[in-house]
Design a protein around this nucleic acid. Structure first.
Length: 561
RNA sequence: UGGGGGAUAGUUUAAUGGUAGAACUGCGGACUCUGACUCCGUUAGUCUAGGUUCGAAUCCUAGUCCCCCAGCCA
């Protein structure tokens, strides 16, 4: 279909906004926000929300805020604030000068609480946590009113002041909205607006001993900031009536809450609790372990912001729960890196090859393209000599006919170098192949035969005396099953861990230019995959590589089937 | 067994009463100095049963299945 005929497909949120704009709501403004709680690290699921909110603002020429929902000092820390802002900036979402904290609004929130008390819409309750649960009722039975529900406003006001002044112990009093104890929506059964909690807040210090609840904070914070569309995940759908109730009761700007389905991915878990457990119990090296789908983990794995953004765009947004195939994420990073990563040669599991008819001590510099499809990325020189390394997988003693690599009597091309023919192999006393003997054809320099003969296979190699010895980490899915969250009978999700998710290669041999690879830079090791120079563990002259993704491999795949 | 949401190829997602389309995956092939990339082809779908209509994924009725809610977490 010609592009001009193809109407851009609109997701349900865009359709809502289109309709709002057409109806003249919000004076034509679109203003979104991302509201993380600073109690953990961001993961790929948050990236979906960040990309969604910031992309919407950009698309409609609107604004995007970053606001920390920091109403629970017991769990929140400055460390997380720093990590989260850093990750969001890295992702490329721009909140300009609009970085806010719900705690910035504590005074206003308190004033609004007073307003509701005076209006007879809120009261101080002295039920303890357990009693409150009993009074709340169940899913099928209505709750019953708290004995403190009918306290007159003046009394409530005095009590609230005392709560704020620190005259009561933690947990002894709450401020509750007076809504409907019989509502089928339990969130409306007089929800808590303020609780007493003596904890040091990362921003307000010890100024407060009472803290507002999520429900009494979120909508009003959106309102203060002039948010037009407050986009959150599905589990808050049941809270929307409350969101609306507070905005209406207070008579303030009323943003529209819209819920979408959170991201799920195969072969991973996404809940903060499980992620935390993986870190605490040291099943991974930390929040930035490259196998973690935290933003920090993805960064260290070598994922790029644009790949993550492309992924988030592609997966779409809807209200139906879904689980995206991990292959989509891998596809996104391959697409980006295939385009941008310079090529290099690296032998992961070396097998020594001696080219018997190549003069000992001779070294030639051969020219190699940095990107076969992009000449503008230039070329580099690679040394060639009598002894080289090739990949162990590129030799097979009893090779099937369609194995287009090395075997005794077979000829292959060494990429950018010569055709070589394997003549013999050397084994150690245990029968392991330790060396190959080959001959080369001097006429094929550069990789082409003047007589026009073809070879089916081209393999990568590294000159042994020039090679850089490096450690390389091969990463695979952290979990071995598609739905690791589902624990096997009698076990936990940990039983689903993939025992082979990390393979350490201490003896990889790389082409010499890689010795000084810049930490944080990326390469495609031809025929192997995309690799990222680890910014933490690399030392000058001693790079450490993390495999970001493999290349697609239709050969191995066929063999396995 | 209360309330709120949801259901379109294997997986995501379009089509908003008018030819069910795309991407990822799978499979087959072409190309190739990366068994990569690229290109071509191909399998495969409207939860079920009724109804309205010339015409239904879309509207109506009745079911089925899945998710969320009983924190002083967010």
């Amino acid at each position: 279909m010609p592009p001009e005929e193809k109407a851009a497909s609109r997701n349900f949120i865009q359709q809502i906004i289109d309709a709002d704009l057409a109806a003249g709501k919000n004076d034509g403004r679109v203003h979104t926000r991302f509201p993380p709680e600073p109690n953990g690290y961001l993961h790929i699921g948050h990236a979906k929300s960040i990309c969604l909110n910031s992309a919407l603002a950009r698309e409609y020429d609107g604004k995007f805020n970053l606001r920390f929902d920091d109403t629970n000092p017991a769990k929140e820390e400055q460390e997380y604030v720093d990590a989260i802002t850093d990750d969001i900036r890295w992702l490329g979402a721009d909140w300009e000068d609009r970085l806010f904290f719900a705690s910035d609004y504590f005074d206003q929130l308190y004033a609004w609480a007073v307003q509701l008390v005076e209006a007879g819409k809120a009261y101080v309750c002295q039920l303890d946590a357990e009693q409150m649960r009993e009074y709340r009722g169940t899913l099928t039975e209505p709750g019953k009113p708290s004995p403190y529900r009918e306290r007159p406003p003046a009394e409530n006001l005095a009590l609230l002041e005392q709560m704020k002044a620190g005259e009561f112990p933690d947990g002894s009093h709450t401020l509750r909205a007076k809504i409907d104890m019989a509502s089928p929506n339990l969130n409306l059964r007089d929800p808590v607006m303020y609780r007493i909690k003596r904890a040091h807040h990362h921003r307000t210090g010890d100024r407060w001993c009472i803290y507002p609840s999520y429900d009494f904070t979120h909508g009003q914070s959106d309102s203060i900031e002039g948010i037009t569309h407050s986009i959150c995940t599905l589990e808050f759908e049941n809270h929307r009536p409350l969101y609306d109730w507070f905005c209406q009761s207070l008579g303030i700007h009323h943003p529209q809450q819209i819920e979408f389905a959170r991201l799920n991915l195969t072969y991973t878990v996404m809940s903060k609790r499980l992620l935390l457990q993986l870190v605490n119990e040291k099943h991974v090296a930390g929040w930035d372990d490259p196998r973690m789908l935290t933003i920090r983990g993805l960064r260290r794995r070598g994922y790029t912001p644009s790949a993550i953004r492309a992924f988030c765009e592609r997966i779409g947004v809807a209200k139906a729960n879904s689980t995206i195939d991990m292959a989509w994420l891998e596809d996104a990073i391959r697409e980006d890196l295939n385009e941008h990563a310079p090529r290099a040669m690296g032998v992961l599991r070396p097998l020594k090859v001696v080219i018997e008819n190549y003069p000992a001590g001779q070294v030639e510099q051969l020219e190699a393209a940095n990107h076969p499809q992009k000449p503008e990325m230039g070329t580099r020189q690679i040394p060639f000599s009598r002894e080289i390394y090739v990949e162990q997988d590129d030799f097979m003693e009893d090779a099937p006919k369609k194995f287009f690599r090395l075997s005794v009597g077979r000829e292959v091309r060494l990429r950018y170098a010569y055709f070589i023919t394997c003549t013999d192999l050397v084994k150690d006393s245990d029968g392991n192949i330790v060396e190959l003997r080959c001959t080369y054809d001097p006429a094929t320099k550069g990789g082409n035969a003047p007589d026009g003969r073809k070879v089916k296979g081209t393999i990568h190699w590294v000159s042994a005396p020039h090679a850089v010895n490096a450690s390389v980490r091969l990463y695979d899915h952290l979990f071995a099953v598609e739905e690791p969250g589902k624990a096997p009978a009698g076990g936990t999700f940990l039983d689903n861990l993939n025992p082979n998710s990390l393979e350490l290669l201490a003896d990889a041999q790389l082409e010499p230019a890689l010795r000084d690879a810049e930490p944080g830079s990326q390469f495609q090791f031809e025929r192997n995959g995309y690799f990222f120079v680890d910014p933490v563990d690399s030392k000058p002259g001693k790079p450490v590589f993390n495999r970001t993704a493999t290349l697609r491999d239709s050969w191995t795949k066929n063999e396995l089937s």
